[in-house]
Design a protein around this nucleic acid. Structure first.
Length: 652
DNA sequence: ACTAATGTCCTTTTT
DNA sequence: GGACATTAGT
C-alpha cells in the first residue's frame, strides 16, 4: 500500500487499530485520502468489505471514497466494493427493509421525498381546516421544517418554535394537532419520510436484541463529516456500538454548517470523552496557497498552514450590481481558461440557489457550459414527479400522496373526486381490481403495474406512453418535458428493481443537471455552479463567491442568535477554503433579493459583511471593477486608483 | 366539482 | 417571481 504518500499523522490515522478513533481533519488536510487509506488498510488486513459500514454525507462522497480505496489497495486485490456505504438515511432504509416485520412495516413501504412529505403535510393541513384561518397559517414547507427540526433535535415543539421559528409560535396548539395527524397518516399509508428513516433505525437500536444482531454484522464503522450529524444519529451510533470498538469518526467542527438540519457540533466535540477515543488531528493543508489560508485563518481564528508558500492575495471585488458581477465572473473565468485552467477546475459559489440567476443567463448567452449543484433538482419538476407518482402508487397501493397525484392527472379529476376514488379503492382492500377511476386505460395501466409478475424493465416506458398525451394539456413546453422523461427512462434502466429505483430517486436524487443530461456531457469542459453547502468536500483552482455582503454572509435571517452567526461565519470559511489558488470575493453594491414585503423595493444595497474585519481585509486585495458607480460606496482598504500620479505624470 | 384567473404574501441552506 | 388562497366561470 502506498503509505509513503501520507504524512506521519495521516499514516497514524490510516493504520490505527481497533479502539475508538476521532480524526480531526481541517479543511484541505487530506481527509478523504486518509479515510480511503484507512479503508484500504482494513481490507488488506483481511477485514471483509461487507463488514465495513461507511457512513458519509452523500453517496457521491461514498463513491469517491471507495474509488480511492480501490486505487490505493491496488493490484493486491481484485476489487474493493463496500456494499454497506452510504448516507445515514440510505443505510437506515436498507436495515429497515431487512427487518421490516420487526417494526410493523410492509416490505413495500414507500420513502417520501421532501416534496411528497410536504404534499402529505399539506393534505392534513387542509383536512384540519388550517388553510383558511383568519391569520395565515405557516405553509407546508415551513410546517415540515418545524416538524423535522423537532424530531431531529428531540426537543420539545415549544422550544423549536421559540428558537428557530418564532413567527410561528402562536400556532403551537394547531401545529401539535397537525403533526399528530401527519404521523398517523404516514403510518396508515406505509410511508416514511426522511426523518422516519432515522427514527425507525433509532427505535430498532433501542431493541437490545436487534441492536446486537445488526452490530454483529460489522467489524468497523466509519463516519465521515461527523460534525454534521444530529442527536438522533449520534444515539444510533452509541446504541449500535456502545463500546466504540472499531468506530472511527472524521470531521472538523470549524466546518459545521448544517444546524438548520438539526446537526450539532457537540457530537464531534464530545466524541473523544464519550468513547474515550484516541484523537488524531490533521493540520497540514495541501490544498490552498498560504495567501488563501491567511484570509481564512483570520476569519475564524484557525491556524491552517500550507505547503504552497506563494500565491496572490484573495481579491475583494466591489462591483456595481448583479449584472456586472456576472460580467466579472465570465471575464475572469474565460481569462483563466486562456491561462490553461479548465472550466471544471473553477467554481462559482453562492449562499442561496437563486443567486446565480443573472450569471446563468449570461453563461447561456455566451455559450459557456455549466453544471449547477444544489437548489432545485430535476426531480422537482412537475412532469417528472407525475410519472414517479404513478410508479410509487403501483409500488405501494396505500401511498395516498402518490395516488392523489396520479389520479389528478386524468382530465376531470380534481381533489374531491380523487379522494372519492381512493376511498373506494381503500374499501376494496387496496386490490387493483377494485380501482375505478374515470379512465379504463389508466385502470388497466395500474393493474398491470400493480401485478408483481410484470417485469420492471419497460414499466417506465409504459407509463410514459400513457402520460405523454396529457403533457400538452397540463403544461407548456411539452417537447422539453417529453425529453426529460426519456432521460428518466434511460436512468431507470440501470436499476434492478422498481423499489430500488424509487427509493434511490427519493434518497439520492441526481444532484445536478449533468447527472441527468447523461454521460457524454461529462466529457466536455464545464463551469461548476454550486451553493456553498453543496460545495462541501470539494476543491477548485479558482473560486468566485457571489454576493459577499451582510444579509448573505451572514444571512439576514440568522442575525438574531450568536450561535447562528457563528455558523454563518463557518459557511464563509468553508467557501473560502475550497479555493486552491485564486479566490474572488464579490461584493455588488446593489444586488437583487427575492421579493420581500415592500413593493418596488427589489434590490438592496449591500453593506460590507461583518465578517470582513480589518484583520481579514488585511489579507485581501481590494479592487473596484467596472463602473462601480455609487461614490458613497464603502470601499474598503487602500485607494485602488492612483489619480495623483496620473495627474503628476501629465506634466512631467 | 373542476379549471382558470386573480389577488396576496412572502424566511436560505439539504438528507 | 412563486406559492397559496380565493373567486368566477364552466
Amino acid at each position: 500500500m502506498a503509505l509513503e504518500t501520507l504524512n506521519p499523522r495521516q499514516r497514524e490515522a490510516a493504520c490505527f487499530g481497533n479502539s475508538p478513533l476521532l480524526i480531526i481533519a481541517g479543511a484541505g488536510t487530506g481527509k478523504t485520502n486518509t479515510l480511503a487509506h484507512r479503508v484500504a488498510h482494513l481490507v488488506l488486513q483481511q477485514v471483509p468489505a461487507e463488514r465495513i459500514l461507511l457512513l458519509t454525507f452523500t453517496r457521491r462522497a461514498a463513491l469517491e471514497m471507495t474509488r480511492r480505496a480501490q486505487r490505493i489497495a491496488g493490484e493486491a486485490l481484485k476489487e474493493v466494493k463496500l456494499p454497506w456505504s452510504g448516507t445515514f438515511h440510505s443505510i437506515a432504509n436498507r436495515l429497515i427493509r431487512r427487518h421490516c416485520k420487526r417494526v410493523g412495516l410492509d416490505p413495500g413501504f414507500s420513502v417520501l421525498d421532501r416534496g411528497d412529505a410536504a404534499d402529505l403535510m399539506d393534505f392534513v393541513r387542509h383536512e384540519r381546516g388550517l388553510s383558511r384561518a383568519e391569520k395565515r397559517f405557516p405553509r407546508k414547507d415551513t410546517c415540515l421544517a418545524i416538524y423535522s427540526h423537532r424530531v431531529n433535535t428531540q426537543r420539545s415543539l415549544a422550544e423549536t418554535l421559540q428558537t428557530l421559528f418564532p413567527w410561528c409560535a402562536e400556532w403551537e396548539p394547531e401545529l401539535t394537532g397537525l403533526f399528530r395527524d401527519y404521523a398517523e397518516r404516514k403510518l396508515a399509508d406505509q410511508a416514511l419520510d426522511y426523518d422516519d428513516l432515522l427514527l425507525y433505525w433509532h427505535a430498532m437500536m433501542a431493541d437490545e436484541a436487534l441492536a446486537r444482531e445488526i452490530d454483529a454484522q460489522f467489524d468497523h464503522i466509519l463516519v465521515d463529516e461527523y460534525q454534521d450529524t444530529n442527536v438522533l444519529q449520534a444515539e444510533i451510533l452509541q446504541r449500535l456500538r456502545p463500546s466504540g470498538e472499531g468506530l472511527t469518526v472524521v470531521g472538523d467542527d470549524a466546518q459545521a454548517i448544517y444546524s438548520f438540519r438539526a446537526a450539532t457540533p457537540e457530537n464531534i466535540r464530545g466524541f473523544a470523552a464519550q468513547f474515550d477515543a484516541a484523537v488524531v488531528a490533521l493540520e497540514e493543508n495541501y490544498r490552498s496557497t498560504q495567501a488563501v489560508l491567511d484570509a481564512a485563518n483570520a476569519l475564524i481564528a484557525k491556524n491552517l498552514r500550507s505547503r504552497k508558500k506563494n500565491g496572490a492575495k484573495p481579491r475583494y471585488v466591489t462591483l456595481a450590481d448583479d449584472a456586472s458581477q456576472a460580467q466579472y465572473v465570465v471575464t475572469q473565468v474565460l481569462a483563466a481558461r486562456e491561462r490553461g485552467v479548465l472550466l471544471r477546475r473553477q467554481a462559482v459559489l453562492f449562499r442561496s440557489s437563486h443567486h446565480s440567476d443573472a450569471l446563468e443567463l449570461e453563461l447561456v448567452r455566451r455559450n459557456i457550459p455549466y453544471v449547477k449543484y444544489g437548489g432545485l433538482k430535476f426531480l422537482e419538476a412537475a412532469h417528472v414527479k407525475d410519472v414517479l407518482a404513478v410508479l410509487r402508487w403501483a409500488d405501494n397501493p396505500k401511498n395516498r400522496v402518490a395516488a392523489f397525484r396520479a389520479l389528478q392527472l386524468l382530465p376531470g379529476i380534481g381533489p374531491s373526486l380523487a379522494e372519492r376514488i381512493f376511498t373506494h379503492f381503500e374499501a376494496e382492500g387496496f386490490a387493483w381490481q377494485g380501482l375505478k377511476s374515470s379512465s379504463l386505460e389508466f385502470d388497466e395501466l395500474m393493474r398491470a403495474l400493480g401485478n408483481p409478475e410484470t417485469p420492471w424493465p419497460g414499466q417506465l416506458g409504459r407509463v410514459r406512453e400513457c402520460y405523454e398525451p396529457h403533457l400538452e394539456r397540463l403544461y407548456d413546453a411539452a417537447q422539453v418535458r417529453a425529453g426529460d422523461l426519456l432521460q428518466l427512462e434511460r436512468i431507470s434502466t440501470s436499476f434492478e428493481t422498481r423499489e430500488k429505483f424509487l427509493t434511490e430517486m427519493a434518497l439520492d436524487p441526481p444532484q445536478a443537471t449533468s447527472d441527468f443530461a447523461g454521460v457524454p456531457y461529462l466529457d466536455e469542459d464545464y463551469l461548476v455552479l454550486s451553493t456553498v453547502h453543496s460545495a462541501k468536500g470539494q476543491e477548485w483552482e479558482a473560486v468566485y463567491l457571489l454576493n459577499v455582503a451582510d444579509g448573505n454572509f451572514p444571512s439576514e435571517f440568522s442575525t438574531g442568535r450568536p450561535e447562528l452567526i457563528d455558523e454563518e461565519r463557518r459557511l464563509l470559511y468553508v467557501a473560502m477554503t475550497r479555493a486552491k489558488s485564486d479566490l474572488h470575493l464579490l461584493a455588488p453594491l446593489k444586488y437583487y433579493v427575492a421579493q420581500q414585503s415592500r413593493m418596488g423595493d427589489k434590490h438592496v444595497y449591500g453593506a460590507q459583511s461583518r465578517f470582513l474585519t480589518e484583520a481579514v481585509m488585511a489579507c485581501l486585495e481590494p479592487l473596484a471593477w467596472g463602473d462601480a458607480y455609487g461614490a458613497e460606496a464603502p470601499l474598503a482598504g487602500k485607494p485602488t486608483v492612483d489619480v495623483a500620479s496620473r495627474l503628476r505624470g501629465m506634466w512631467s
